[in-house]
Design a binder for these strands. Structure first.
Lengths: 328, 328
DNA sequence: TTGTAAGCGTTATCAT
DNA sequence: ATGATAACGCTTACAA
C-alpha cells in the first residue's frame, strides 16, 4: 500500500502538501494539486484510515450494539437498520454491528438496544456519545415506544367495538416491553370494569408464528374470548392461521389485533389490524440524535422521546356476533 | 482516555509490559500482571484500536458492501446478516455495513453483493481479500444461487402435477438473477414441448406484495393459466391475496410457487410452496471463506460455489382441475 | 503556498 | 521477564 510519502515523492512535494490536497484542497496551488492528484491516481493511493483515526481521534464509525438474540425479529430490525443507515450515510458515517461486550473496534458513537432494563438504567455518559433504544436514565439520550399506551389503545379498540371477553396473547421475554404491553391491556380492561379471567391470558412458547399457531389452537379451543390483543404480529399471524384451520372466521367470529406493524400483518388474508411502531423513524431519530452529539462540542441537555404506536385497523377486527361460542 | 503509559506508570512497569499483558499474558510474571490488571481496572483503560490497527495493519473489521436498494428485501438480508455475523463473531471480527463507493473505513476484508454482473466480473484480487455473493471472475471467491435451475425445478414441479398452462410472474430488476429465473422457466417449458403464450408471462411493477397483488388481479382476470411460477415470495404472496379476493381458491383452482423461502411464505394461508434459498448458510459461507483468506498467508485457489434452492412443497400446489377457467 | 518537526497510542525488535 | 527505541501513516502547529 502506498503512503502519503510515496505520493509526495512522485509529485515532488512534501507529504504535508499531499495531506492538504486531500483535506483542504483550496489551500494548495492548483498546479501542485494537479501533480498530486496525478500521483495519487497513478499509485492507487488511498488514505490509511487507522492512521487518520489515531491522529484525529475519530473513526467515522458508529457502533450498533444489540444482543444477537434480538436479530430474530427480522423485519423489525431491518427497518431499524434502514432508518439508521439512512441518516448515517448522509454524514459519511459507517455502521458497525456488534454484540454487547465486543470491545473490538473503536467508534465515534454507539446506538445501544436490547439490554435489560437494569443494565440500561445503569448506563452513564462517557466520552464517546451513546443513544439508547429503550427507556434509560435521564443523563442519556433515549427513545422508547410507549408499549403500555399502545396496548391500552389496542384493547380499547376491541372494547369500543363491543367486545367484553377480550383475551391477551403474549410470550416470554426478558425485555421490559412485554410487561408494559400486558399492563396496558390490564389497565384498559380494568377501566372498562371488566374482570379479566385467568384463561383469557395465553402465553405462547416464544415470539414466532409457529408458537403463535400452536398456542393459538389451544386458545381457540377454550372458546372463552371474542377478541384477542396480541403482543406481536408474529403470534397474531400464528393465531390467525390457527383460526383458519379451526374454521373460526376472522373477524366475524374472532377479532385479532397484533403489535409491531412492520409488514407481516399484510402477508395473509385477512390483513391484520396491528399497532404500528414507527420503526424506520425511530432508527432515524437514534442516528440523528447521535450524530448531533458527535458533531457538537458543548453538551446540550439529554433528549428523551416516547413514541406511541399508531393503530392500523385493516380487516381483522369487527363487533362481536350476538350469538357466539355457544357449545356447538 | 488513559493510555498504555498511564497504566504503566501506575503499575510501575514499562508500557511494553502492559502491552504484553494485554496480548501475550503468559509472557509476563504473574505479580506484574496482577499489578497491571489492577491499574487497568482502576483507570478504566481500554486499548486504542486505531493505534493498534495502525501498527498491526489490521482492523478486526469486515465490510459488507451492498447497494442501499438491496436492503429492501428485508427478510432475505437479515437472514444473510445473521449467517455472516454468526461466523464473524466467532473470530472476533465486527461487521461494517456500507454502500458501494464508501471508502471511509478501513477493513480486513470485504463481502460484496448487489453489483451489476459487469461490475462483478470486472473485480480483481486486491490486497484486502474479498468474497462475492453472485457470480464473479475465476480469480475471486464467490458463491451464487443457481436461479436458472431453481426456477426450472419449480416449473417442472407444476408440469409433473399435470399443469400445461403454467404462467410466470416476474418483476423488473437490473440484477442478473431475474433473467436467470426466467430462463429456467422457459427451458422447462420448452423441454416439456409446451409453447409459452405471451400472456402467460406477467411482470409486476416491482418486487413487493402490493405490486404482486395488483398485477396478480390482472393475471387472474386473463384466466389463461392454471399454475404460476413466481420470481419471489413477495409477488407470490400478492398473487395469493389477489386470488383470495377474486374467489379463486389456491391450490384447487390455481397452483402457486414462489421463490426465496425466507419466511414470508408461511405468513398466510395456504402456506405457499417456494424455492428456498439457503440464505443463512450462504451468509456463513461468505464469512467463512473470507475469514480463511484473512487469516492465511499463502494464497489458496479461489473458491466458487453454486447452491441450488430446495423446493418446499407446502400447501399451494395441486394437480389442475379438469374443468377450469371455462367462461362462467 | 509550502515544508519541518512532533506526536497520536500501540507493538516489534532488539537489548538487558 | 522486562525495557528502550523505532516504527505504523497521518495531521496539527509552527516556521519559512
Amino acid at each position: 500500500m502506498p503512503t502519503i510519502y510515496d505520493v509526495a515523492k512522485l509529485a515532488q512535494v512534501s507529504a504535508m502538501t499531499v495531506s492538504r490536497t486531500l483535506n483542504t484542497p483550496e489551500k494548495v496551488r492548483p498546479e501542485s494539486r494537479a501533480k498530486i492528484e496525478a500521483a495519487i491516481a497513478k499509485l492507487g493511493y488511498r488514505q490509511n484510515q487507522a492512521a487518520r483515526a489515531l491522529v484525529l481521534q475519530s473513526t467515522g464509525i458508529v457502533k450498533l450494539q444489540m444482543s444477537a438474540g434480538l436479530r430474530g425479529n427480522h423485519l423489525y430490525f431491518s427497518q431499524l437498520f434502514s432508518g439508521i443507515t439512512d441518516v448515517l450515510s448522509q454524514h459519511k458515517l459507517a455502521m458497525l454491528v456488534t454484540d454487547h461486550h465486543e470491545h473490538t473496534a473503536a467508534c465515534d458513537g454507539k446506538i445501544i438496544m436490547g439490554l435489560t432494563r437494569e443494565a440500561q438504567m445503569a448506563l452513564t455518559p462517557s466520552k464517546t456519545p451513546k443513544v439508547l433504544f429503550g427507556k434509560g436514565p435521564d443523563c442519556i439520550d433515549w427513545i422508547d415506544v410507549d408499549n403500555e399506551r399502545g396496548c391500552r389503545r389496542a384493547t380499547e379498540r376491541m372494547l369500543s367495538l363491543g367486545h367484553e371477553r377480550v383475551g391477551f396473547f403474549t410470550f416470554p421475554s426478558t425485555e421490559p416491553f412485554i410487561k408494559e404491553r400486558e399492563a396496558g391491556y390490564l389497565r384498559a380492561m380494568q377501566e372498562a370494569g371488566i374482570t379479566v379471567q385467568p384463561n383469557w391470558i395465553v402465553t405462547a412458547m416464544n415470539n414466532s408464528v409457529e408458537a403463535g399457531y400452536s398456542s393459538g389452537r389451544a386458545l381457540l379451543n377454550q372458546r372463552a374470548v371474542t377478541a384477542v390483543v396480541c403482543c406481536s404480529d408474529h403470534v397474531a399471524v400464528g393465531l390467525a392461521q390457527a383460526a383458519y384451520d379451526s374454521h373460526v372466521s376472522v373477524p366475524e367470529e374472532l377479532s385479532i389485533i397484533g403489535f409491531d406493524g412492520v409488514g407481516q400483518e399484510r402477508m395473509g388474508k385477512p390483513i391484520l389490524a396491528t399497532m404500528r411502531q414507527p420503526v424506520f423513524d425511530i432508527g432515524r431519530w437514534l442516528a440523528k440524535t447521535l450524530v448531533q452529539r458527535i458533531k457538537q462540542v458543548g453538551d446540550a441537555a439529554p433528549q428523551h422521546q416516547m413514541v406511541t404506536p399508531d393503530i392500523l385497523l385493516n380487516d381483522s377486527t369487527a363487533p362481536p356476533k350476538a350469538i357466539l361460542w355457544r357449545s356447538d
